[in-house]
Design a protein around this nucleic acid. Sequence first.
DNA 1: CGTTGATTTATTGTCCGACAATCCAATCGT
DNA 2: ACGATTGGATTGTCGGACAATAAATCAACG
Lengths: 253, 253
Amino acid sequence: MKATRKLSIEKISIAPAYKVVSQAIERQIMQGTIKAGDVLPSETALAEQLGVNRSTVREGIRLLEQNGLVRRRGGKKLFASVPHYHETAAHVSRAMVLHEVTFQELWETIMALEPVAAELAAERATEEEIAALEDNLERTRRSLANSESLTELDIEFHHLIARASHNRALLLAREPLSHLFYPAFYNVMSRLNAGERLFFAHDKILEGIRNRDPQTAKSWMEKHIVDFRRGYELANLDIHAQVEPSSLPLVAE
Amino acid sequence: MKATRKLSIEKISIAPAYKVVSQAIERQIMQGTIKAGDVLPSETALAEQLGVNRSTVREGIRLLEQNGLVRRRGGKKLFASVPHYHETAAHVSRAMVLHEVTFQELWETIMALEPVAAELAAERATEEEIAALEDNLERTRRSLANSESLTELDIEFHHLIARASHNRALLLAREPLSHLFYPAFYNVMSRLNAGERLFFAHDKILEGIRNRDPQTAKSWMEKHIVDFRRGYELANLDIHAQVEPSSLPLVAE
DNA sequence: CGTTGATTTATTGTCCGACAATCCAATCGT
DNA sequence: ACGATTGGATTGTCGGACAATAAATCAACG
Protein backbone atom coordinates (compact mmCIF):
# COMPACT_ATOMS: atom_id res chain seq x y z
CA MET A 1 0.00 0.00 0.00
CA LYS A 2 1.70 3.12 1.23
CA ALA A 3 3.41 2.61 4.56
CA THR A 4 5.95 -0.16 4.90
CA ARG A 5 5.09 -1.67 8.22
CA LYS A 6 7.00 -4.87 7.76
CA LEU A 7 9.98 -4.08 9.90
CA SER A 8 9.71 -7.07 12.18
CA ILE A 9 10.45 -10.44 10.75
CA GLU A 10 7.05 -11.70 11.75
CA LYS A 11 6.22 -15.33 12.12
CA ILE A 12 5.18 -16.38 8.69
CA SER A 13 3.01 -15.95 5.71
CA ILE A 14 2.19 -12.44 4.73
CA ALA A 15 -1.19 -12.75 3.13
CA PRO A 16 -1.11 -12.63 -0.67
CA ALA A 17 -2.33 -9.39 -2.18
CA TYR A 18 -5.51 -10.82 -3.60
CA LYS A 19 -6.53 -11.89 -0.13
CA VAL A 20 -5.73 -8.47 1.25
CA VAL A 21 -7.89 -6.93 -1.44
CA SER A 22 -10.76 -9.20 -0.55
CA GLN A 23 -10.44 -8.51 3.14
CA ALA A 24 -10.25 -4.79 2.58
CA ILE A 25 -13.51 -4.80 0.69
CA GLU A 26 -15.09 -7.26 3.07
CA ARG A 27 -14.27 -5.06 6.02
CA GLN A 28 -15.95 -2.10 4.38
CA ILE A 29 -19.04 -4.16 3.75
CA MET A 30 -19.19 -5.56 7.26
CA GLN A 31 -18.68 -2.14 8.79
CA GLY A 32 -21.44 -0.72 6.69
CA THR A 33 -19.24 1.71 4.81
CA ILE A 34 -20.52 -0.11 1.78
CA LYS A 35 -24.14 -1.12 2.08
CA ALA A 36 -25.90 -3.92 0.29
CA GLY A 37 -27.04 -2.72 -3.09
CA ASP A 38 -24.25 -0.21 -3.51
CA VAL A 39 -22.38 -0.46 -6.73
CA LEU A 40 -18.65 -0.94 -6.39
CA PRO A 41 -16.03 0.86 -8.45
CA SER A 42 -14.81 -0.73 -11.63
CA GLU A 43 -11.98 -3.20 -11.52
CA THR A 44 -9.54 -0.71 -12.93
CA ALA A 45 -10.62 1.90 -10.42
CA LEU A 46 -10.23 -0.55 -7.56
CA ALA A 47 -6.85 -1.59 -8.85
CA GLU A 48 -5.75 2.01 -8.86
CA GLN A 49 -7.15 2.79 -5.42
CA LEU A 50 -5.57 -0.27 -3.86
CA GLY A 51 -2.34 0.03 -5.75
CA VAL A 52 -2.41 -3.41 -7.30
CA ASN A 53 -2.93 -4.84 -10.71
CA ARG A 54 -6.34 -5.50 -12.11
CA SER A 55 -5.71 -9.24 -12.24
CA THR A 56 -5.06 -9.18 -8.52
CA VAL A 57 -8.24 -7.25 -7.90
CA ARG A 58 -10.13 -9.80 -9.93
CA GLU A 59 -8.84 -12.66 -7.83
CA GLY A 60 -9.87 -10.79 -4.72
CA ILE A 61 -13.32 -10.22 -6.11
CA ARG A 62 -13.72 -13.93 -6.77
CA LEU A 63 -13.37 -14.63 -3.09
CA LEU A 64 -16.09 -12.15 -2.21
CA GLU A 65 -18.25 -13.36 -5.03
CA GLN A 66 -18.20 -16.90 -3.77
CA ASN A 67 -19.18 -15.67 -0.34
CA GLY A 68 -22.14 -13.84 -1.74
CA LEU A 69 -20.87 -10.55 -0.37
CA VAL A 70 -20.72 -9.23 -3.88
CA ARG A 71 -22.46 -10.15 -7.07
CA ARG A 72 -22.85 -9.03 -10.65
CA ARG A 73 -26.17 -7.83 -11.87
CA GLY A 74 -26.99 -7.14 -15.47
CA GLY A 75 -23.74 -8.75 -16.39
CA LYS A 76 -21.59 -5.77 -15.79
CA LYS A 77 -21.87 -3.77 -12.63
CA LEU A 78 -20.64 -5.19 -9.36
CA PHE A 79 -22.95 -4.76 -6.38
CA ALA A 80 -22.40 -5.30 -2.73
CA SER A 81 -24.89 -7.77 -1.40
CA VAL A 82 -26.08 -9.79 1.53
CA PRO A 83 -25.36 -13.50 1.10
CA HIS A 84 -28.52 -15.27 0.00
CA TYR A 85 -29.55 -17.79 2.53
CA HIS A 86 -29.57 -20.60 0.01
CA GLU A 87 -25.98 -19.86 -0.91
CA THR A 88 -25.04 -20.12 2.72
CA ALA A 89 -27.09 -23.27 3.09
CA ALA A 90 -25.31 -24.77 0.10
CA HIS A 91 -21.96 -24.13 1.75
CA VAL A 92 -23.03 -25.90 4.88
CA SER A 93 -24.62 -28.77 2.97
CA ARG A 94 -21.45 -29.36 1.07
CA ALA A 95 -19.41 -29.26 4.22
CA MET A 96 -21.66 -31.82 5.84
CA VAL A 97 -21.47 -34.15 2.88
CA LEU A 98 -17.70 -33.93 2.81
CA HIS A 99 -17.53 -34.49 6.53
CA GLU A 100 -19.50 -37.67 5.91
CA VAL A 101 -22.26 -36.81 8.29
CA THR A 102 -24.64 -39.69 8.86
CA PHE A 103 -28.37 -39.77 8.55
CA GLN A 104 -28.69 -40.17 12.28
CA GLU A 105 -26.73 -37.00 12.98
CA LEU A 106 -28.90 -35.15 10.53
CA TRP A 107 -32.03 -36.49 12.08
CA GLU A 108 -31.04 -35.63 15.63
CA THR A 109 -30.37 -32.08 14.62
CA ILE A 110 -33.50 -31.56 12.61
CA MET A 111 -35.41 -33.13 15.47
CA ALA A 112 -34.10 -30.37 17.68
CA LEU A 113 -35.01 -27.58 15.29
CA GLU A 114 -38.25 -28.37 13.53
CA PRO A 115 -40.55 -28.58 16.52
CA VAL A 116 -39.33 -25.19 17.68
CA ALA A 117 -39.89 -23.81 14.21
CA ALA A 118 -43.47 -25.10 14.27
CA GLU A 119 -44.00 -23.67 17.72
CA LEU A 120 -42.79 -20.25 16.70
CA ALA A 121 -44.71 -20.38 13.46
CA ALA A 122 -47.90 -20.93 15.43
CA GLU A 123 -47.17 -17.73 17.30
CA ARG A 124 -46.03 -15.58 14.46
CA ALA A 125 -47.20 -16.78 11.06
CA THR A 126 -48.87 -14.13 8.97
CA GLU A 127 -52.03 -14.78 7.02
CA GLU A 128 -50.04 -14.95 3.80
CA GLU A 129 -47.72 -17.53 5.26
CA ILE A 130 -50.62 -19.62 6.46
CA ALA A 131 -52.19 -19.35 3.03
CA ALA A 132 -48.96 -20.55 1.45
CA LEU A 133 -48.92 -23.50 3.81
CA GLU A 134 -52.50 -24.33 2.98
CA ASP A 135 -51.71 -24.16 -0.69
CA ASN A 136 -48.81 -26.52 -0.13
CA LEU A 137 -51.06 -28.89 1.79
CA GLU A 138 -53.61 -28.90 -1.00
CA ARG A 139 -50.94 -29.70 -3.56
CA THR A 140 -49.71 -32.44 -1.27
CA ARG A 141 -53.18 -33.93 -1.15
CA ARG A 142 -53.22 -34.09 -4.91
CA SER A 143 -49.79 -35.70 -5.13
CA LEU A 144 -50.17 -38.57 -2.73
CA ALA A 145 -49.17 -41.01 -5.43
CA ASN A 146 -46.07 -39.30 -6.70
CA SER A 147 -43.05 -39.85 -4.45
CA GLU A 148 -40.98 -37.24 -6.15
CA SER A 149 -43.36 -34.33 -5.85
CA LEU A 150 -44.29 -35.52 -2.41
CA THR A 151 -40.70 -35.21 -1.34
CA GLU A 152 -40.38 -31.76 -2.80
CA LEU A 153 -43.64 -30.67 -1.26
CA ASP A 154 -42.58 -31.91 2.14
CA ILE A 155 -39.34 -30.00 1.95
CA GLU A 156 -41.26 -26.94 0.88
CA PHE A 157 -43.72 -27.38 3.73
CA HIS A 158 -40.98 -27.43 6.31
CA HIS A 159 -39.27 -24.52 4.67
CA LEU A 160 -42.45 -22.50 4.77
CA ILE A 161 -42.84 -23.25 8.44
CA ALA A 162 -39.32 -22.13 9.13
CA ARG A 163 -40.07 -18.92 7.27
CA ALA A 164 -43.24 -18.47 9.25
CA SER A 165 -41.23 -18.78 12.45
CA HIS A 166 -39.76 -15.38 11.62
CA ASN A 167 -36.44 -16.52 12.91
CA ARG A 168 -33.69 -16.19 10.38
CA ALA A 169 -31.11 -17.88 12.53
CA LEU A 170 -33.34 -20.90 12.73
CA LEU A 171 -34.07 -20.71 9.04
CA LEU A 172 -30.40 -20.58 8.23
CA ALA A 173 -29.54 -23.40 10.60
CA ARG A 174 -32.13 -25.86 9.36
CA GLU A 175 -32.01 -25.19 5.64
CA PRO A 176 -28.90 -27.21 4.81
CA LEU A 177 -30.20 -30.14 6.83
CA SER A 178 -33.51 -30.13 5.08
CA HIS A 179 -31.76 -30.08 1.76
CA LEU A 180 -29.70 -33.11 2.63
CA PHE A 181 -32.78 -35.06 3.59
CA TYR A 182 -34.00 -35.11 0.04
CA PRO A 183 -32.46 -38.43 -1.08
CA ALA A 184 -33.34 -40.24 2.13
CA PHE A 185 -36.84 -38.89 2.06
CA TYR A 186 -37.36 -39.89 -1.51
CA ASN A 187 -36.24 -43.40 -0.68
CA VAL A 188 -38.62 -43.71 2.21
CA MET A 189 -41.51 -42.30 0.25
CA SER A 190 -41.08 -44.52 -2.76
CA ARG A 191 -40.73 -47.66 -0.71
CA LEU A 192 -43.29 -47.14 1.98
CA ASN A 193 -46.13 -45.33 0.34
CA ALA A 194 -46.49 -43.23 3.44
CA GLY A 195 -48.14 -40.30 1.74
CA GLU A 196 -51.28 -40.56 3.84
CA ARG A 197 -49.41 -40.38 7.11
CA LEU A 198 -47.40 -37.45 5.86
CA PHE A 199 -50.46 -35.58 4.75
CA PHE A 200 -52.19 -36.26 8.03
CA ALA A 201 -49.27 -34.97 10.05
CA HIS A 202 -48.90 -31.87 7.91
CA ASP A 203 -52.57 -31.22 8.30
CA LYS A 204 -52.37 -31.44 12.06
CA ILE A 205 -49.33 -29.21 12.21
CA LEU A 206 -50.96 -26.62 10.04
CA GLU A 207 -54.08 -26.83 12.14
CA GLY A 208 -51.99 -25.98 15.18
CA ILE A 209 -50.50 -23.04 13.39
CA ARG A 210 -53.83 -21.82 12.12
CA ASN A 211 -55.33 -22.00 15.59
CA ARG A 212 -52.35 -20.23 17.12
CA ASP A 213 -51.75 -23.27 19.24
CA PRO A 214 -47.97 -23.64 19.59
CA GLN A 215 -48.13 -26.79 21.66
CA THR A 216 -50.19 -28.67 19.12
CA ALA A 217 -48.02 -27.54 16.25
CA LYS A 218 -44.91 -28.50 18.14
CA SER A 219 -46.00 -31.91 19.30
CA TRP A 220 -47.35 -32.91 15.91
CA MET A 221 -44.12 -31.82 14.35
CA GLU A 222 -42.28 -34.00 16.82
CA LYS A 223 -44.48 -36.94 15.93
CA HIS A 224 -43.93 -36.21 12.27
CA ILE A 225 -40.17 -36.22 12.55
CA VAL A 226 -40.11 -39.30 14.74
CA ASP A 227 -42.40 -40.97 12.29
CA PHE A 228 -40.07 -40.23 9.47
CA ARG A 229 -37.27 -41.92 11.29
CA ARG A 230 -39.38 -44.97 11.86
CA GLY A 231 -40.20 -44.98 8.19
CA TYR A 232 -36.52 -44.75 7.40
CA GLU A 233 -35.83 -47.82 9.48
CA LEU A 234 -38.85 -49.69 8.16
CA ALA A 235 -37.62 -49.06 4.66
CA ASN A 236 -34.52 -50.94 5.68
CA LEU A 237 -32.23 -48.01 5.21
CA ASP A 238 -29.08 -47.70 7.26
CA ILE A 239 -29.35 -45.07 9.94
CA HIS A 240 -25.59 -44.73 9.98
CA ALA A 241 -25.21 -44.28 6.25
CA GLN A 242 -23.49 -41.13 5.13
CA VAL A 243 -25.73 -38.53 3.59
CA GLU A 244 -25.34 -38.11 -0.12
CA PRO A 245 -25.14 -34.84 -1.94
CA SER A 246 -28.54 -33.90 -3.24
CA SER A 247 -28.62 -32.77 -6.80
CA LEU A 248 -31.77 -30.84 -6.03
CA PRO A 249 -31.06 -27.14 -6.21
CA LEU A 250 -31.93 -25.22 -3.12
CA VAL A 251 -35.15 -23.32 -3.31
CA ALA A 252 -34.51 -19.95 -4.87
CA GLU A 253 -34.64 -16.46 -3.35
CA MET B 1 -33.08 -7.93 -30.18
CA LYS B 2 -33.86 -10.52 -32.80
CA ALA B 3 -32.58 -8.52 -35.71
CA THR B 4 -29.54 -10.70 -35.91
CA ARG B 5 -29.89 -14.20 -37.22
CA LYS B 6 -28.38 -15.74 -34.14
CA LEU B 7 -30.12 -18.84 -32.94
CA SER B 8 -32.63 -17.70 -30.36
CA ILE B 9 -31.44 -20.14 -27.69
CA GLU B 10 -28.95 -17.52 -26.62
CA LYS B 11 -31.17 -16.25 -23.81
CA ILE B 12 -29.45 -17.52 -20.73
CA SER B 13 -26.01 -16.21 -20.09
CA ILE B 14 -23.33 -18.82 -20.31
CA ALA B 15 -21.34 -19.09 -17.13
CA PRO B 16 -17.96 -17.38 -17.31
CA ALA B 17 -15.04 -19.70 -17.85
CA TYR B 18 -13.57 -19.24 -14.41
CA LYS B 19 -16.81 -20.47 -12.89
CA VAL B 20 -16.82 -23.46 -15.18
CA VAL B 21 -13.31 -24.26 -14.09
CA SER B 22 -14.30 -24.06 -10.46
CA GLN B 23 -17.34 -26.24 -10.96
CA ALA B 24 -15.38 -28.81 -12.90
CA ILE B 25 -12.93 -29.22 -10.07
CA GLU B 26 -15.63 -29.07 -7.45
CA ARG B 27 -17.52 -31.87 -9.13
CA GLN B 28 -14.46 -34.07 -9.09
CA ILE B 29 -14.00 -33.42 -5.42
CA MET B 30 -17.62 -34.06 -4.51
CA GLN B 31 -17.69 -37.25 -6.55
CA GLY B 32 -14.61 -38.49 -4.82
CA THR B 33 -12.49 -38.60 -7.95
CA ILE B 34 -10.25 -36.27 -6.05
CA LYS B 35 -10.04 -37.09 -2.37
CA ALA B 36 -9.20 -34.73 0.45
CA GLY B 37 -5.45 -34.54 0.80
CA ASP B 38 -4.72 -35.15 -2.85
CA VAL B 39 -2.45 -32.67 -4.49
CA LEU B 40 -3.85 -30.96 -7.53
CA PRO B 41 -1.96 -30.31 -10.74
CA SER B 42 -0.11 -27.05 -11.15
CA GLU B 43 -1.91 -24.03 -12.50
CA THR B 44 -0.23 -24.32 -15.86
CA ALA B 45 -1.10 -27.98 -16.09
CA LEU B 46 -4.72 -27.28 -15.20
CA ALA B 47 -4.84 -24.49 -17.73
CA GLU B 48 -3.61 -26.85 -20.39
CA GLN B 49 -5.99 -29.67 -19.44
CA LEU B 50 -9.00 -27.40 -19.35
CA GLY B 51 -7.99 -25.41 -22.38
CA VAL B 52 -8.07 -22.01 -20.75
CA ASN B 53 -5.57 -19.43 -19.72
CA ARG B 54 -3.75 -19.64 -16.44
CA SER B 55 -5.34 -16.42 -15.21
CA THR B 56 -8.72 -18.00 -15.71
CA VAL B 57 -7.68 -21.08 -13.80
CA ARG B 58 -6.45 -18.90 -10.97
CA GLU B 59 -9.78 -17.14 -10.69
CA GLY B 60 -11.50 -20.49 -10.60
CA ILE B 61 -9.19 -21.68 -7.87
CA ARG B 62 -10.02 -18.64 -5.78
CA LEU B 63 -13.62 -19.70 -5.67
CA LEU B 64 -12.74 -23.14 -4.42
CA GLU B 65 -10.21 -21.75 -2.02
CA GLN B 66 -12.76 -19.56 -0.34
CA ASN B 67 -15.06 -22.55 0.03
CA GLY B 68 -12.37 -24.51 1.75
CA LEU B 69 -12.54 -27.22 -0.90
CA VAL B 70 -8.95 -26.53 -1.75
CA ARG B 71 -6.10 -24.97 0.15
CA ARG B 72 -2.43 -24.26 -0.15
CA ARG B 73 -0.02 -25.90 2.17
CA GLY B 74 3.56 -24.86 2.45
CA GLY B 75 2.78 -21.96 0.21
CA LYS B 76 3.14 -23.87 -2.99
CA LYS B 77 1.26 -27.07 -3.51
CA LEU B 78 -2.49 -27.04 -3.86
CA PHE B 79 -4.37 -29.71 -1.94
CA ALA B 80 -7.95 -30.81 -2.07
CA SER B 81 -9.50 -30.50 1.32
CA VAL B 82 -12.61 -30.79 3.40
CA PRO B 83 -13.94 -27.41 4.52
CA HIS B 84 -12.91 -26.79 8.10
CA TYR B 85 -15.93 -26.45 10.25
CA HIS B 86 -14.83 -23.06 11.57
CA GLU B 87 -14.59 -21.73 8.04
CA THR B 88 -18.12 -22.86 7.42
CA ALA B 89 -19.22 -21.40 10.71
CA ALA B 90 -17.64 -18.09 9.79
CA HIS B 91 -19.62 -18.02 6.57
CA VAL B 92 -22.84 -18.53 8.42
CA SER B 93 -21.94 -16.03 11.12
CA ARG B 94 -21.27 -13.40 8.56
CA ALA B 95 -24.51 -14.13 6.79
CA MET B 96 -26.42 -13.78 10.03
CA VAL B 97 -24.80 -10.49 10.89
CA LEU B 98 -25.56 -9.11 7.46
CA HIS B 99 -29.12 -10.34 7.67
CA GLU B 100 -29.37 -8.37 10.89
CA VAL B 101 -30.46 -11.27 12.98
CA THR B 102 -31.55 -10.26 16.45
CA PHE B 103 -30.42 -11.55 19.77
CA GLN B 104 -33.79 -13.13 20.30
CA GLU B 105 -33.60 -15.16 17.12
CA LEU B 106 -30.17 -16.32 18.09
CA TRP B 107 -31.33 -17.27 21.53
CA GLU B 108 -34.35 -19.21 20.34
CA THR B 109 -32.18 -21.25 18.03
CA ILE B 110 -29.46 -21.99 20.50
CA MET B 111 -32.15 -22.88 22.99
CA ALA B 112 -33.30 -25.54 20.59
CA LEU B 113 -29.84 -26.98 20.03
CA GLU B 114 -27.82 -26.84 23.21
CA PRO B 115 -30.01 -29.02 25.41
CA VAL B 116 -29.95 -31.72 22.78
CA ALA B 117 -26.20 -31.40 22.54
CA ALA B 118 -25.88 -31.88 26.28
CA GLU B 119 -28.24 -34.82 26.18
CA LEU B 120 -26.25 -36.55 23.48
CA ALA B 121 -22.97 -35.71 25.16
CA ALA B 122 -24.18 -37.49 28.28
CA GLU B 123 -24.71 -40.58 26.18
CA ARG B 124 -21.58 -40.46 24.08
CA ALA B 125 -18.81 -38.39 25.60
CA THR B 126 -15.49 -40.18 25.78
CA GLU B 127 -13.26 -40.03 28.84
CA GLU B 128 -10.97 -37.56 27.10
CA GLU B 129 -13.86 -35.31 26.28
CA ILE B 130 -15.07 -35.41 29.85
CA ALA B 131 -11.58 -34.65 31.04
CA ALA B 132 -11.43 -31.64 28.72
CA LEU B 133 -14.72 -30.43 30.12
CA GLU B 134 -13.46 -30.83 33.66
CA ASP B 135 -10.35 -28.93 32.79
CA ASN B 136 -12.49 -26.18 31.37
CA LEU B 137 -14.61 -26.12 34.49
CA GLU B 138 -11.55 -25.83 36.68
CA ARG B 139 -10.24 -22.92 34.67
CA THR B 140 -13.67 -21.35 34.93
CA ARG B 141 -13.55 -21.65 38.68
CA ARG B 142 -10.28 -19.75 38.73
CA SER B 143 -11.56 -17.01 36.43
CA LEU B 144 -14.76 -16.03 38.17
CA ALA B 145 -13.59 -12.45 38.39
CA ASN B 146 -12.51 -11.94 34.83
CA SER B 147 -15.45 -11.34 32.48
CA GLU B 148 -13.41 -11.74 29.40
CA SER B 149 -11.90 -15.14 30.10
CA LEU B 150 -15.20 -16.20 31.57
CA THR B 151 -16.88 -15.47 28.28
CA GLU B 152 -14.26 -17.37 26.35
CA LEU B 153 -14.40 -20.27 28.72
CA ASP B 154 -18.16 -20.47 28.45
CA ILE B 155 -18.00 -20.55 24.69
CA GLU B 156 -15.36 -23.23 24.92
CA PHE B 157 -17.47 -25.23 27.35
CA HIS B 158 -20.41 -25.29 25.03
CA HIS B 159 -18.20 -26.10 22.09
CA LEU B 160 -16.71 -29.04 23.96
CA ILE B 161 -20.16 -30.33 24.75
CA ALA B 162 -21.16 -30.10 21.13
CA ARG B 163 -18.03 -32.05 20.23
CA ALA B 164 -18.84 -34.61 22.86
CA SER B 165 -22.26 -35.08 21.32
CA HIS B 166 -20.49 -36.73 18.40
CA ASN B 167 -22.91 -35.11 16.04
CA ARG B 168 -21.19 -33.06 13.40
CA ALA B 169 -24.40 -31.71 11.96
CA LEU B 170 -25.26 -30.32 15.36
CA LEU B 171 -21.74 -29.04 15.81
CA LEU B 172 -21.86 -27.27 12.49
CA ALA B 173 -25.30 -25.83 13.12
CA ARG B 174 -24.59 -24.37 16.52
CA GLU B 175 -21.06 -23.10 16.01
CA PRO B 176 -21.89 -19.86 14.20
CA LEU B 177 -24.54 -19.05 16.78
CA SER B 178 -22.20 -19.57 19.66
CA HIS B 179 -19.68 -17.34 18.02
CA LEU B 180 -22.17 -14.53 17.66
CA PHE B 181 -23.06 -14.71 21.33
CA TYR B 182 -19.67 -13.50 22.34
CA PRO B 183 -20.39 -9.75 22.52
CA ALA B 184 -23.74 -10.20 24.23
CA PHE B 185 -22.29 -12.65 26.66
CA TYR B 186 -19.43 -10.40 27.51
CA ASN B 187 -21.83 -7.58 28.19
CA VAL B 188 -23.95 -9.65 30.51
CA MET B 189 -20.94 -11.00 32.34
CA SER B 190 -19.30 -7.69 32.92
CA ARG B 191 -22.47 -6.04 34.15
CA LEU B 192 -24.04 -8.75 36.21
CA ASN B 193 -21.18 -10.54 37.87
CA ALA B 194 -22.96 -13.78 37.22
CA GLY B 195 -19.86 -15.94 37.31
CA GLU B 196 -21.08 -17.99 40.23
CA ARG B 197 -24.34 -18.91 38.58
CA LEU B 198 -22.53 -19.81 35.40
CA PHE B 199 -20.07 -22.01 37.20
CA PHE B 200 -22.83 -23.71 39.12
CA ALA B 201 -24.79 -24.51 35.97
CA HIS B 202 -21.73 -25.77 34.13
CA ASP B 203 -20.93 -27.94 37.09
CA LYS B 204 -24.40 -29.48 37.09
CA ILE B 205 -24.34 -30.07 33.36
CA LEU B 206 -20.99 -31.74 33.54
CA GLU B 207 -22.20 -33.84 36.43
CA GLY B 208 -25.04 -35.06 34.27
CA ILE B 209 -22.61 -35.93 31.52
CA ARG B 210 -20.20 -37.64 33.86
CA ASN B 211 -22.98 -39.75 35.34
CA ARG B 212 -24.31 -40.63 31.92
CA ASP B 213 -27.56 -39.00 32.85
CA PRO B 214 -28.92 -37.36 29.70
CA GLN B 215 -31.99 -35.92 31.37
CA THR B 216 -30.03 -34.07 34.01
CA ALA B 217 -27.56 -32.74 31.50
CA LYS B 218 -30.35 -31.62 29.25
CA SER B 219 -32.49 -29.93 31.85
CA TRP B 220 -29.58 -28.09 33.42
CA MET B 221 -28.54 -26.92 30.04
CA GLU B 222 -32.04 -25.62 29.49
CA LYS B 223 -31.91 -23.79 32.78
CA HIS B 224 -28.51 -22.41 31.87
CA ILE B 225 -29.68 -21.01 28.56
CA VAL B 226 -32.87 -19.60 30.01
CA ASP B 227 -30.83 -18.08 32.77
CA PHE B 228 -28.61 -16.39 30.28
CA ARG B 229 -31.56 -14.77 28.65
CA ARG B 230 -32.80 -13.49 31.96
CA GLY B 231 -29.36 -12.10 32.62
CA TYR B 232 -29.46 -10.41 29.25
CA GLU B 233 -32.69 -8.69 30.13
CA LEU B 234 -31.57 -7.85 33.65
CA ALA B 235 -28.51 -6.20 32.20
CA ASN B 236 -30.91 -3.94 30.38
CA LEU B 237 -29.86 -5.10 26.95
CA ASP B 238 -32.30 -5.03 24.09
CA ILE B 239 -33.55 -8.46 23.15
CA HIS B 240 -34.34 -7.20 19.68
CA ALA B 241 -30.96 -5.66 19.04
CA GLN B 242 -29.09 -6.91 16.02
CA VAL B 243 -26.17 -9.14 16.74
CA GLU B 244 -22.80 -7.57 16.12
CA PRO B 245 -19.92 -9.19 14.37
CA SER B 246 -17.58 -10.70 16.89
CA SER B 247 -13.94 -9.96 16.37
CA LEU B 248 -13.12 -13.11 18.27
CA PRO B 249 -11.64 -15.64 15.89
CA LEU B 250 -13.39 -18.96 15.79
CA VAL B 251 -11.71 -21.68 17.73
CA ALA B 252 -9.07 -23.26 15.54
CA GLU B 253 -8.55 -26.81 14.30
C1' DC C 1 25.53 -44.87 3.71
C1' DG C 2 23.17 -41.13 5.53
C1' DT C 3 23.20 -36.31 6.34
C1' DT C 4 23.85 -31.87 5.00
C1' DG C 5 24.54 -28.06 1.84
C1' DA C 6 24.42 -26.08 -2.71
C1' DT C 7 22.20 -25.76 -7.14
C1' DT C 8 18.69 -26.27 -10.36
C1' DT C 9 13.87 -26.50 -11.55
C1' DA C 10 9.02 -25.81 -11.07
C1' DT C 11 5.42 -23.10 -9.49
C1' DT C 12 3.14 -19.31 -7.56
C1' DG C 13 2.03 -14.41 -7.05
C1' DT C 14 2.02 -10.33 -9.35
C1' DC C 15 2.33 -7.32 -13.10
C1' DC C 16 1.69 -5.49 -18.01
C1' DG C 17 -0.66 -5.09 -22.16
C1' DA C 18 -4.18 -6.46 -25.46
C1' DC C 19 -8.76 -7.41 -27.45
C1' DA C 20 -13.56 -8.89 -28.32
C1' DA C 21 -18.06 -8.68 -26.42
C1' DT C 22 -21.26 -6.06 -24.31
C1' DC C 23 -23.39 -2.94 -21.37
C1' DC C 24 -24.27 2.16 -20.50
C1' DA C 25 -24.94 6.71 -21.63
C1' DA C 26 -25.04 10.37 -24.48
C1' DT C 27 -26.25 11.85 -28.96
C1' DC C 28 -28.90 12.19 -32.88
C1' DG C 29 -32.84 11.85 -36.08
C1' DT C 30 -37.46 12.05 -36.50
C1' DA D 1 -40.80 13.09 -26.55
C1' DC D 2 -38.76 8.86 -28.08
C1' DG D 3 -36.40 5.19 -30.64
C1' DA D 4 -32.17 4.18 -32.97
C1' DT D 5 -27.19 4.96 -33.26
C1' DT D 6 -22.91 5.50 -31.72
C1' DG D 7 -18.98 5.64 -28.86
C1' DG D 8 -16.92 4.99 -24.40
C1' DA D 9 -16.42 2.17 -20.35
C1' DT D 10 -16.09 -2.33 -18.36
C1' DT D 11 -15.69 -7.20 -18.09
C1' DG D 12 -13.92 -11.72 -19.40
C1' DT D 13 -10.21 -13.87 -21.43
C1' DC D 14 -5.84 -14.25 -23.31
C1' DG D 15 -0.68 -14.04 -23.89
C1' DG D 16 3.57 -13.19 -21.93
C1' DA D 17 6.92 -11.71 -18.35
C1' DC D 18 9.53 -11.83 -13.96
C1' DA D 19 10.87 -12.11 -9.00
C1' DA D 20 10.42 -14.99 -5.07
C1' DT D 21 10.50 -19.29 -3.22
C1' DA D 22 9.21 -24.13 -2.44
C1' DA D 23 10.55 -28.56 -4.18
C1' DA D 24 13.60 -31.54 -6.26
C1' DT D 25 18.11 -32.74 -7.55
C1' DC D 26 22.73 -33.22 -7.01
C1' DA D 27 27.37 -32.67 -4.57
C1' DA D 28 30.21 -32.90 -0.77
C1' DC D 29 31.16 -34.56 3.53
C1' DG D 30 31.20 -37.07 7.80
